[in-house]
Simulated assay, not measured.
Amino acid sequence: MRVLVTGANGYLGQAVVKLLAGAGHEPIAMVRDCGSPLRAPTRVADLLDEDGLRKAVDGVEAVCHLGGLTRARESAADPLRYFRVNTGGTVALLDAMAAAGISRLVFASTGSIYGTPERQPMTERLPDAPPHPYAASKLAAEWAIGAQAGTGRLSATVLRLMNVAGGADPDPTRLIPRAFAAARNGSALEVNGDGSAVRDYLHIDDAAAAFVAGIENMPPKGEFRRFLIGSGRGSSILDVVAAVERRTGRRIQLIHRPPAPEPAALISDPAKAMAELPWRPAQSDLDTIVCDTPRRGDLSR
């Protein structure tokens, strides 16, 4: 199947392109610029460029929509930009798909839409409670996708992803890259509170595999499905630090800052995705994620 991947030069997008090709599909990479070479035919377009989008979707059979803005804290400072790109860009893509007669869509959303529910692990039955503009912009995009599916012109699968990690993670602000940097440089790692906050880490390849499963198991036209995609495991900040120490053989000094107003635990229950997509998190135990993270400067050798 010819599959357009928006945001194809991003951290997750590159993994999705690779796994689609490995599964026998023909991925087509949509990027905003040609700065990063990809092992796939590439089309340059912006989500806010309607003419460019119509050219980008020409001749494709399905779309994996990963393009957009993803930083929660940044979204609080510039919310309109997040709604413009994440919500408006998705609507523009839906318009281009409808004009081209493309009816299959897999959309990258976020598990943060559930906010801070008391019930853990989280399931798809929980109410939506987006805690920041980033999550709200993704939820609004989901509503647009669901409404379009309701017309009978679209078959849509939404994947609400937990904390994607592992591989060549390019974001130095995330915990695992920060822990490796501290081990590598001998610097201290600053953490909020006592380090007991628990999160659900999802291996980058498991996240990408969910998109392949979504493409290969689309619902009938007119249906809209939503899945929570995570490991189903909880790892604290201290667990992550210990795993990096095991991997590198180096101690990491911690500096404990005042606690931040954040949930004590956010863990997914991926049972629905495992049963219905079907998909499973095969590589998302913490040690596997950590062992796969340092592609360069491997400190254990």
Score class of each variant (00 low, 15 high):
Gly7Val: 03
Gly13Phe: 01
Gly13Ala: 04
Gly13Lys: 00
Ala15Glu: 05
Val16Thr: 03
Val17Met: 12
Leu20Lys: 07
Leu20Ile: 02
Gly22Phe: 00
Cys34Arg: 09
Ala40Ser: 07
Pro41Phe: 01
Pro41His: 09
Gly52Asn: 11
Ala56Thr: 07
Val57Lys: 03
Asp58Gln: 14
Asp58Leu: 04
Ala62Glu: 11
Val63Ile: 03
Leu66Asn: 14
Ala72Met: 14
Ser75Lys: 04
Ala76Cys: 15
Asp78Tyr: 13
Tyr82Leu: 01
Thr90Leu: 11
Gly111Ala: 15
Pro117Val: 15
Gln120Gly: 05
Met122Cys: 08
Glu124Trp: 01
Pro127Ser: 15
Asp128Leu: 01
Ser137Ile: 06
Gly146Asn: 08
Gln148Thr: 10
Ser155Asn: 12
Gly166Ile: 14
Ala179Gln: 05
Phe180Asp: 06
Glu190Cys: 12
Ala197Trp: 03
Ala197Phe: 00
Ala197Gly: 00
Tyr201Trp: 13
His203Leu: 00
Ile204Trp: 05
Asp205Thr: 15
Asp206Thr: 12
Ala213Glu: 10
Met218Trp: 06
Pro220Gly: 11
Glu223Val: 11
Arg226Trp: 01
Ser231Arg: 05
Ser235Gly: 06
Leu238Asp: 08
Val240Thr: 04
Ala242Asn: 08
Arg246Ala: 02
Arg257Glu: 07
Glu262Gln: 10
Ala264Leu: 09
Ala273Gln: 02
Trp279Glu: 11
Pro281Phe: 13
Ala282Asp: 11
Thr288Ser: 12
Thr288Asn: 12
Thr293Val: 03
Pro294Gln: 09
Pro294His: 13
Gly297Ala: 10
